[in-house]
């Protein structure tokens, strides 16, 4: 499978996700600069974590209008999978490729620590290698990860199985006390209708092997590799 990682000025997880993709899928991704208008023919586009444009105006707002994003939106419309991690998730919401918005953490602080997540829907190329309801532990590192959308949108996301992962307690407990950033209904990651686009705040690419402190993020990339193997 071929993939592309979009690099924005201020991206800082582009190399991490490139290493994860390279090691697990066996193919190093093409790195595409945000100013390029063309993206090679690929099976997956990744918007990495970081602080594109220094989070000016709103996190992801400037990057959402980068030249390359016109092509990302067009590919996404054609059904090409797009994965947005952390700042990538913020960019996807700002670009209108996913609903809702990510605002300042409820506690106002930048939070960098491992969190527990419950895998809510395993019927996607990203989550297929996890058993449904599995609790995993991977890190978050953000100041603007508080997911917000109107009640109607939240109901639709839940009703249509578009919530990918939720923040939870160590035993899978869901509740306000288990959301580190105040996210509505503990939402940590969502799909688009076709489940080809996934945006999530936690960083699976940071925990892909025991030497990094854990490998709970690895099945994300194994699922991608399996689904896109050709």
């Amino acid at each position: 499978m071929k993939s592309a990682v979009i690099v924005f000025p201020g991206s800082n997880c582009d190399r991490d996700v490139a290493v994860a993709l390279g090691r697990i899928t066996g193919h190093a991704p093409t790195m595409v600069w945000h100013g390029d208008r063309a993206i090679p023919k690929v099976d997956l586009i990744v918007l990495p974590g970081g602080f594109s444009y220094g989070d000016y105006l709103r996190s992801g707002a400037m990057a959402a209008h980068s030249p390359v994003m016109t092509e990302v939106a067009a590919r996404s419309k054609q059904g090409v999978p797009v994965l947005g991690i952390c700042n990538g998730f913020q960019i996807l919401t700002e670009a209108g490729l996913l609903p809702g918005a990510l605002v300042r953490n409820a506690g106002l602080r930048f939070i960098c620590r491992d969190v527990h997540l419950k895998v809510e829907n395993t019927d996607s190329m990203y989550t297929r290698r996890y058993p449904r309801g599995q609790v995993i532990r991977i890190p978050i590192a953000h100041a603007d990860g508080n997911y917000r959308a109107d009640a109607q949108t939240l109901d639709r996301l839940e009703g249509e199985g578009l919530v990918a992962v939720r923040y939870c307690g160590p035993n899978g407990e869901i509740g306000e006390q288990h959301t580190p950033n105040g996210s509505a209904r503990n939402i940590a990651g969502i799909f688009n209708e076709r489940r080809t686009v996934l945006g999530l705040m936690p960083h699976p690419e940071r925990l892909i092997e025991p030497a990094l402190g854990g490998s709970d993020g690895r099945p994300f990339f194994e699922g991608i590799a399996e689904a896109l193997a050709a």
Partner: peptide, 9 residues
């Protein structure tokens, strides 16, 4: 509408 405000929030 297009950039300065995010009308979702």
């Amino acid at each position: 509408e297009r950039l300065l405000a995010n009308t979702v929030i």
